[in-house]
Amino acid sequence: MPQSVNTVEPPSTAPPEPPHRPEGTADRKAATRGRKKKSPMNRVRKRDLLIFMGPWTLGFVLLTAGPLLGAIYLSFTHFNLLAAPTFIGVDNFVHMFTSDPRFYRSLVVTGLYVVISVPLQLLIALALAMLLDTGVRGLSYYRALYYLPSLIGGSVAIGILWRTIFGYEGGINQILRALGFTDLPSWVDNPNTSLMTLIVLNVWTFGSPMIIFLAGLRQIPTDLYESASIDGAGKTRQFFSITLPMLTPLIFFNLILQTINAFQAFTPAHVISGGTGGPADSTMFYTLYLYIEGFTRFNMGYASALGVMLLMLIGLLTALNFLFSRYWVFYND
């Protein structure tokens, strides 16, 4: 893909210039090396650094790193919330991999949810971003309108709405009955269709990646398209040879973010299944299972182990994404 871009805008043949270095830099460095006392300017900069970094560092230590370390510790304990945790080594992890079918079931359900909903969501987000980028009037209104589901899609209210819409007497079945369909199921209570309703809900929250794509589309230099047009490239060719390669960093960014979000999806499954992951574990998201173990069955040590495993899983997938990104993500540097 990047080669196509190069055909439109050939690289310069001039030899690269050496990096600019102000005269006397080496002498100044040598002089400061021997200095023991820091200048008042340095002290001010250090103070400013502490002031500006302090709140974030405090928040990170107290709200992220602290609980994370706590969870890692608890994952090696038996902790039922009521009594003090007792150290049990790696028993939770052994149990997870050797005698917990629901762990694997939740992995499969979450995996399907991620693999199906994230690409669909990105596809729709990109398509709509391109549509809005055609100079449509009232762009800001459309942008706000499409972004709205991203804000409310993960809420309890939308979960309840979804349950109502896809229920036996819900709006979807009312429409289908009016069209002559019979023997319709309750989509959220049928194990064959319940996950699909959650996938639709996630796809519906395409607004956030769409906004990012829209911004990315507007950053692609127009002269690329003009050159391609002069060279006789049609719209399709321009899309695959210019738009898509230039957007790959943002596609990659959205892919990472939405994958992580999808792995952490909880509220819709909890609301739609009534907190059970049913019917027949068909909506047993990993996070929901973690919640059930922790707060319904009081196995907080095991739930922590599940949390640590999820962190490792997301970390591994993200690392793999980064590893493979060099083969398909084009950076203009």
Partner: peptide
Amino acid sequence: MHSSKRTRPLTRRPLSRRNF
């Protein structure tokens, strides 16, 4: 081919690997 708005991008600096 493209709207006139394209001539007024928010910024012309492409996303570098480091920034990304």
